[in-house]
Design a protein around this nucleic acid. Structure first.
Ligand code: SF4
Ligand code: SF4
Lengths: 145, 145
DNA sequence: CTTTATTAAGATAAAATACTCTTAAATAGG
DNA sequence: CCTATTTAAGAGTATTTTATCTTAATAAAG
């Protein structure tokens, strides 16, 4: 049961590093993040570019440039990041993929699959990046190595 | 949030067709299933071969051969089929993939990810193929086209 | 014994995903 | 203006997943 692609996993881990190490009014360089998390600089750069396009991050080029959250961390919910990384239809996926399922006569697994999706969606929607950053710092969770 | 690979989806759909159309003591040909579900015969054949190896199905070659459930439908749980199709570690997957996470200091998403997995696992474990087949028949769910 | 129907097995091809590399553009600072 | 630092953009490569194709093995029936 893989919920996220590599893009989603790396993107989340990278953004968690960012929120766990806040630097007042400064940009954090992508190099610092990729080095610390030991992830490919180029791959993370590409992922961050998408997040910048989608309005989750802002970026700045040149010396002392880097990326930063576009909004305060308590105003960005996990679900925003996940949808940006995995697509807006992330929670609309079907379990078995019947070709012309209009959900008029739902298949026998639809009910509990829907439940599962709603439960995860609720948790994603209620969790802010600020909350996650705080937890990582206070509980000393290691994101690296 | 894609829970199943194509192998998993096709495999489930094909086995649902089988349980929804029971034929007392006979084998159902793979051709019939792939034709009715409009899925690739070769791909379904390959998937069924794995399910046969894993003991979910039995097969028989030659005229009037085909595949059949290895056990009565009420003794095969959805979770058995899913694990056979997707791997035994299906419910052990990590959400963000921290490299050396020993779950001593779980990351801040572990708790609700675990909840989600347990909920789906429970539903998969409590649902038998017999139940699904019955629902498909009585609720006239279409698996084809 | 031959033909036909069927699954088994594995090679091959195509497509999607994951990752890398190169070059360009922006910006700060000397 | 020049150089160093950093993200942007996109081309290129590798790996995995998905799907197809070919040939073999098995078994029934004439
Ligand atoms: S009923 Fe739901 S799970 Fe079933 S095929 Fe339709 S969308 Fe998918
Ligand atoms: S705590 Fe759980 S979700 Fe987080 S990295 Fe470890 S296994 Fe994955």
């Amino acid at each position: 049961m893989k919920a996220l692609s590599q893009v989603g996993k790396y993107g989340l881990r990278a953004i968690l590093y960012l929120v766990a190490n806040p630097s007042e009014g400064q940009y954090m360089s992508i190099r610092q993040i990729s080095d610390n998390l030991k992830l490919s600089f180029h791959f993370i750069t590409k992922i961050f570019r998408e997040l910048t396009e989608k309005g989750i991050l802002i970026s700045y080029r040149g010396p002392s440039g880097g990326i930063a959250l576009a909004k305060p961390a308590d105003q960005i919910m996990l679900i925003d990041v996940v949808k940006a990384l995995e697509g807006e239809d992330y929670f609309d996926k079907c379990l078995i993929g019947l070709p012309h399922c209009g959900i008029a006569k739902p298949c026998p697994v639809h009910e509990f699959w829907k439940e599962t999706k709603i439960q995860l969606q609720k948790n994603f929607a209620e969790t802010s990046l600020a909350t996650l950053g705080e937890k990582i710092r206070t509980q000393e969770v290691r994101l690296d190595e």
